[in-house]
Nucleic acid binder design. Structure first.
Lengths: 241, 241
DNA sequence: CCAAAAGTGTTACACGTACACCCATGA
DNA sequence: TCATGGGTGTACGTGTAACACTTTTGG
């Protein structure tokens, strides 16, 4: 600290409206998808320069007449056909040289998507591809860093709010839900403790049907109690495992 | 969700380098200060249009040749004379109409400052003023929202990492530390439980001196064990109160 | 001597964690 | 019948929360 330096006031600055302070603003989406087995990330292989052929997050410039949120929704719809996707802002990346071509800052957001076969295929037709989180290719710019940061924030979020609705199908089994949490937290969870805790939240409704796709015995299907779910979503809970 | 709409690819877009996508990028600082009694916020009364005379956070445009972080450090130094201040990014605000004059997004950051008399006065000379958190004036644009969001994030941070170094003087008393946490969490804390918990972290070193400025009996002064402090800062802890 | 703040311990309860076996079924 | 994944209960320790009185000393 240099408390003895004489302060001078910067705001309001004299440089208001100076054209040469304008720059590009992009938004990049870290798209997480869950297919009841793996936590995946949607990446895009660039077809044009710059960085032709390299892997990148899905992103776009923010247009002058759209908010950052709308730009992110736009690029996500254009790449996946999906709308009304849960998204949450993470960080802004603003180093001068982060993009060697031009001055551009980027606001990163993560999105949570429930994967089904349709989504997987329709997305891959257009040069985008789902990668397992632990098997990512090299990416352009600071996109790996964005992913790391987004995953950290997703972990924090999962401790405080339920995340299942966005990633799981309407009906799901407890082993599926547990696996999702194991993938997010990147550690194993004791199934007895997990079931005890998640059931004590009264957030799940047990159905009479079983899903036998993963075992001979079959696992009971559950759905979310949406009233409880929204309540926890708004007020938070503690799911520290 | 509209999974049946045919996806079209937006990235790489055709609009690369289009001049009309450039916009202003600002950064606004939510400057928290603690004077061992109150948690305060530094606001600035604008001397020029637009918004002349109204209260605002301290902010500036990000220049083309400086990163967001550097811009924030610059405006903080210009307004307070302080350098090497702890700052943390919060959110980017990017609604189209958030600033009625021109398209401008803003990256908000919060800063933590230890207030002493010198700082208080030198800052106020230049039209900035410290306000108690619970007695803020109306502010321009979305600055109140930025403050609310920053305070939420500071609360979360305080649960996971020690925050004392940045806000407290080198020597401080346990009642001062407790009051800081009460102000951040905005609730009362039982002093017996607080002391038990904070002392069990082995993060404090008790000194032989007492501070008698707040009571006749006097309270023992402590300093941080910086090794432990940095360890907790890096690896986190749980301070849920 | 008294007002005002500093400092101190114990108990009850909730919660997290560790841990191992039986069940149902399709192949 | 057996391999595979689904489902269940208990015991222990840790941490949190609630709670009230004594100490010090300047005025």
């Amino acid at each position: 600290m240099v408390p003895n330096r004489k302060p001078t006031i910067a705001f309001p600055p004299n440089d208001f409206y100076r054209q040469d302070h304008k720059m590009y603003v992009a938004t990049d989406c870290i798209v997480f998808g869950y297919d009841s087995n793996d936590l995946k990330l949607l990446l895009f292989q660039r077809k044009l320069s710059p960085f032709k052929g390299e892997w990148s997050l899905i992103g776009t410039f923010v247009h002058l007449d759209e908010s950052i949120d709308v730009a992110a929704e736009r690029v996500l719809e254009q790449t996946t056909g999906l709308t009304n996707i849960f998204m949450e802002q993470t960080l802004a990346y603003g180093h001068v040289k982060r993009d060697p071509g031009y001055r551009c800052i980027s606001i990163a957001k993560y999105a949570l998507i429930r994967l089904d076969e349709h989504d997987k295929k329709s997305v891959e037709q257009y040069g985008a591809k789902w990668f397992s989180l632990d098997d990512l290719p090299p990416m352009i710019l600071d996109h790996q860093q964005m992913i790391n940061d987004a995953l950290d924030m997703l972990k924090e979020k999962a401790k405080k709010q339920p995340v299942g609705f966005e990633l799981l199908p309407k009906k799901f089994t407890l082993p599926q839900l547990q696996r999702l949490y194991e993938l997010i937290y990147q550690k194993e969870i004791d199934s007895r403790n997990f079931r005890k805790k998640v059931l004590s939240l009264n957030i799940l409704i047990k159905l009479q049907e079983k899903d036998k796709s993963n075992s001979k015995k079959g696992a009971f299907l559950y759905k979310f109690n949406s009233r409880k779910y929204n309540q926890y979503f708004t007020n938070g809970f503690n799911f520290d495992t």
